[in-house]
Computed example of a mutant assay.
Amino acid sequence: MAAAATAGSSVTELLPTQNLRPASACISDLDGRFELRGLGPGEYLIVARQEYQLAESFVTIESNEAPDRVDLVFAAPGALRIHVLDTRTLPLSGVGVYLARCDGADISGISGTSDHNGMIEIDGLSPGEYVVKPTAAGVLDGVINSPHRVIVAAGRNAEFEIVLPALVELHLLVLVDGVPLATESVSLRHGTSASQKGRTDETGAANFKGVIPGAVRLTYEKAGKKWEASLDIPNDPLQSLNADLQPMD
């Protein structure tokens, strides 16, 4: 069976519709042509892939003959424009996204990371509906937004925002029984997010950057004993609070 797809090196697979397991595969030539031989009778799904694009066509092979030609046409690619910002509308860099198609087509490897302007741009996407899964390192990983569903149209840009909590710079005076805890290691955790390690100075002061506002827990451990303090961090850029550690049961 002869067929044509786009020019270049698109990978083409032939899958029987009964089990959708590849029956044959090849790479198109520079004219976009490919040929598949030795196929038995039945209905097949032909899938052409080029980078993030897909083109599909069903074909039926009778017992005595196959179609002379099947054309696979890639639709004009679309693109995603994602703006990542915090609740103060400031851009966030270093936040990643992974894409998956809602129809289950394999597009593994499509991802992006926000730049210093909080922008993620992913081009060359085959039209269709996608699930966009945000990921972030550090403290934001535990509070990352749920996946987003977005439709990419042929030749168009799909745009949306990912909004994450604004982070706080926290200055703590760490106390045990009212006495400053000098030159000791302490840990700060917000919910299920990663803990942040810090160390008090000789006055008992400890500074943490990139803290998620809300309920946090400060802990201190030494010689098999543990202390903790629960704090409520307001959503302001800079906070100075006292943390009075209490023995843990």
Rank of each mutant, 00 (worst) to 15 (best):
V168S: 01
T203D: 15
A137R: 08
A100V: 07
N242F: 11
A25T: 15
S187V: 11
I212K: 01
L173H: 10
E56T: 12
P77C: 11
G96A: 15
A154I: 06
A229R: 00
N157C: 08
A205K: 09
N242P: 00
A137Y: 06
I212W: 01
E56Q: 13
T60P: 06
I122D: 00
I82L: 09
A48W: 02
G142P: 03
A223C: 11
D106F: 04
V59D: 07
D115H: 07
D236P: 04
R217H: 07
P77E: 11
L140F: 02
I27Y: 05
Q246A: 08
L125F: 08
I122E: 02
S28A: 14
S146H: 08
V143P: 05
G78C: 04
E13M: 12
L36N: 01
R81K: 10
L175R: 06
L39A: 12
R156T: 10
L175K: 05
A76V: 12
A136E: 00
I212C: 01
L238N: 14
F58C: 02
S111M: 14
L99T: 06
P247C: 02
G155A: 08
P127K: 06
S24E: 15
K226R: 12
R37F: 10
Q50V: 09
G94Y: 02
K225Y: 04
A76Q: 14
V163R: 12
D141F: 01
H83L: 12
V176G: 00
T200D: 08
S187G: 08
I110Y: 03
A154S: 11
L80Q: 04
A205D: 14
